[in-house]
Structures are given as structure tokens and as C-alpha cells.
Design a protein around this nucleic acid. Sequence first.
DNA 1: CAACTATGAATGAACG
DNA 2: CGTTCATTCATAGTTG
Lengths: 221, 221
Amino acid sequence: MATTNGDDRAAASLASRQTTTRWTPTAEQIRILKDLYYNNGVRSPSADQIQRISAKLRQYGKIEGKNVFYWFQNHKARERQKKRFTAAGENLHHHRQGLQISDHLLAYAAKAAPPHRRHGSADFRDCSATPPPTFAWDAFPPPCGRSFHDQNRDEEEDAPEIETLSLFPMHSAGDDHHRLPWQRRLFSSSSSSDCSGAGGSLELTLNSYGNSPLHFHSGAS
Amino acid sequence: MATTNGDDRAAASLASRQTTTRWTPTAEQIRILKDLYYNNGVRSPSADQIQRISAKLRQYGKIEGKNVFYWFQNHKARERQKKRFTAAGENLHHHRQGLQISDHLLAYAAKAAPPHRRHGSADFRDCSATPPPTFAWDAFPPPCGRSFHDQNRDEEEDAPEIETLSLFPMHSAGDDHHRLPWQRRLFSSSSSSDCSGAGGSLELTLNSYGNSPLHFHSGAS
DNA sequence: CAACTATGAATGAACG
DNA sequence: CGTTCATTCATAGTTG
């Protein structure tokens, strides 16, 4: 991303009496953390490792063990979470289902092809054929010569699996998987006339919150 | 909101390849989202719901799962935040003009709530028996002296004094491993070649990025 | 166009 | 671990 300075939030806000209680990692700290995460496969460091890491990172700024712990926890969790609700490729293939508004949309959609904002290069996680079951702490350069990305923003990769998933499973006769109780019928598509640009009515059924279907009135009034 | 715009802001303008093109929800998308929020009580949709919602909303414009996720997060958070100030801000009716930060500053000024724990719960800085979220691994496991660590942080990211403390304690006679709240059940993965270099002076070489000794450049680019 | 506001995006911290 | 809350940054979009 281009969050201005990005990592230097700490340096940026050090001007005043920052009552900020929470840790503001420096660029170097983040760099090291990501290096450990991606290049070394560190995902859930143990207490000992956390201590070592924090000790090391302390050279670059204030940091405590819990910060390291949380960082890895969050980083890992977010990576998974993101993948979870980003199942379908979402940005480059919108089903144009005949709507008048798409006129403009298509217009710039064509030119706005470029993917996200922070796709630099390939990810590092699988830069080597050997999964990182162990912690490569000691001392050894990264297995594969990896070009360092800019500074911050990790390098998540997208697996644009275009599977045209059923947007709204009406009634899955062949129930295959039971995931969670609320995963039942969340949405009910009203056949095929719900995709009106603006001015339609769609029904959404959310069993988890209410059994009554929801009707959207896009009547614009 | 304030301007009841209601147009397809998506079709606003997009000429330059903004590296930070954040999602601009369309009127229909917002309407549906609010409908879900208010009429259906959806506050924190899960991954599955997010997928469906985003899929549905995609008919009205480009959208990704994370947009839905963030939308609900923000909407909920802000609503809560606003309500939280109504009671205390009866006197300070300053138009909170300028500076986004004034938002929370007013909050503190109004309620003067200690900036630590979250929504009132129970205070627990009691260093007696079981400090709930006490993180022991910091530098040294405080017996119970300081429950709350960084509180009056008036220090900056500097002062990295490279103490020569043993960064990597070998085994140190085992002694008592700080029994972290989670270690009991989380850090029990000692059944494998944990840190291979645990018994030596790990060096943590992270020179893949050109390890600068330290030195924080004042940044400011 | 500057000043300001609403809100999307990000992330540290923590809960269950 | 997945989920949730709080706080902060960045910026689209107005408003004067």
C-alpha cells in the first residue's frame, strides 16, 4: 500500500506526547518480523523464540514480548481470514447481468484493470521446495535469493480460482458439508430477476438472525 | 450520508491509477448493507456470510469480501463510538472541526477515561493471584510488581541501548518457565526439534535486507 | 482550491 | 485460533 510512510508511523507520531499506549512498530521491526514469517516460516513462535525475537527487535525500538506474540498471531490469523472471505476472485470478473448502470462501470473497468495496489512480486512463503517445519534461526541466509519487497505490506498472493461459485444456493439437495449452524441457507435468490441494477427487490434469508426473509425495496422511494 | 448523494459514486472519476483506490460503495450497495445491518441485525457477518453478501453486492459494482468485512466493522464501531460520547459530551459542544484525532481527544477529555482496558469490565490490576492477561515474557517475568506495563509511555522509539544482556539464554537450568496463560496448553509443542540453535548463541541473522546497525533516520524522507 | 467531514482500510490488543 | 474491539491513518467527496 502507499500508506504514506507506511511503517514509520512511529517516527511520524513521535513528535508529541504520544499517549499511544500501543506498540507502534518501526519499519525495521516489521521488516524483521516479516522476514521471520515468510523467509523462515515462523508462524507461532514459542515463548523462548518470542523472547529472542523481541530482544533482537528491541534494537530498533521499544518492544515487548507480547508485541511479538500478538504480531504473529494477528498476521497469521489475518492471512487466513482474508483468504476465508475472499474465496471468489472478486475484483476482475463481475457478472454483468444486463443492467443499465453498467455502462459507466464497464467503461472504467476496462482501464482500471490493474489489480490491487500492493502486488509487488511473488510471495516468499514457498520460495523453496522445502517447507519450513523447523525454525531457521541460527544463521543462514534465505534459502532462495529473494528480492526484498519495498518496505511494508506483505505480499499476499491471490489464488483467483474462478469457480463461479453459486452465489446463492437455493436449496442444496445434495448437502455435502456441514460447517456451522448458521451456514445453512443464508441467501435465497429470487430466481433470476433480482439482478436489476437499481429498482429491484431481492430476498435474503438469514437464518442466523431471523427466519423471516428480508426484502429489499429498491424502489428508490 | 450528509449529502444524501445517492449516486453511483463508483462511476465518479477514475482516470489515474491510484495505487490506493479504496472501495467506493454504490448507493445500492450501501442500501443493502444498511438493510442487513438494521433490518436483519447483521453486525458481524462471518466469512460465509461475507462471501454471499459480497457476491450479491457485486451485482451493483465492484466489491470484495474485505470491503464487506470492513464495512460492518466500521459501521458497528462508529455507531458504538458515537453513542458512547453522547452522554459525556453534553458540555463540550465544540464542533469537532479539523483533525481527525480530535475525535478521540474529545472523548478522553469528556469522560477522562483511563486509556487502558476496553469497555468497562472489571479492573484487574491486582497483582495478587492471577493476573489475567499478564505477559510474563517481556524482559523479565515480573512476579507481580507491575501488572500494567507500558502505561505512561513518554519515551520515543529511540533509546535502544544495546544492552549486553544474554539475548539468548541457553537453558538456564530450566528453572521455572514463566507459566504463561497459554503456555500451559499452547506452548506444549516441545516434541520436536524446536529451535535447533536453542543451545547456542543464536545470532538471528536477518541480513537479507542489509542489516543496518540501527540508527533511525529521522524519516520524514 | 483549501478546509473539513465521512468513511474505507489497517492493525494492535484481546476475548471466548 | 477465529473473532471482535478500539484506535489510527488515508482519502473520497463535499462544502464554503
